[in-house]
């Protein structure tokens, strides 16, 4: 197991029961609860890494969680460079992982 959403029924702070949000992530539907960030929805659905870096192609995901590191960039509804940790998930969002290869022509 990895990241996990605390089920609201077990939560000692007793949040009101959440509505669900569903988004598409790289073509597959995933579910979260309303008010979650896109990063939170992705993390809770399994993957920790959801971006490939440009130089070495390594996997990256959430690092700072507060919009500072830009490691969590994803494409949302066609807009690139969206910080997944800062953008609230909206029903129907189409989220795609980002990988920007370096220009090949220059060594």
């Amino acid at each position: 197991m990895t990241a996990r959403l605390l089920p609201f029924s077990d939560d000692p702070i007793r949040p009101s029961s959440p509505a669900s949000v569903s988004i598409q992530f790289d073509g597959a539907p995933i579910e979260g609860v309303s008010g979650q960030s896109i990063a939170g929805v992705i993390l809770a659905s399994g993957p920790l890494g959801f971006r490939r870096t440009s130089v070495s192609g390594k996997s990256r995901g959430v690092f700072c969680g507060i919009g500072v590191c830009f490691d969590c960039l994803v494409e949302v509804n066609g807009d690139r460079d969206v910080r997944a940790c800062q953008r609230r998930a909206v029903d129907g969002d189409v989220v795609v992982t980002q990988h920007d290869a370096l220009p090949g022509s220059i060594a």
């Binding site: 990241a3 939560d11 702070i13 960030s37 939170g40 507060i66």
Partner: peptide
């Protein structure tokens, strides 16, 4: 931030 803002634990 994830714990307080979403009730998400980053790991087990």
């Amino acid at each position: 931030a994830l714990a307080k803002g979403e009730r998400l634990a980053v790991g087990a």
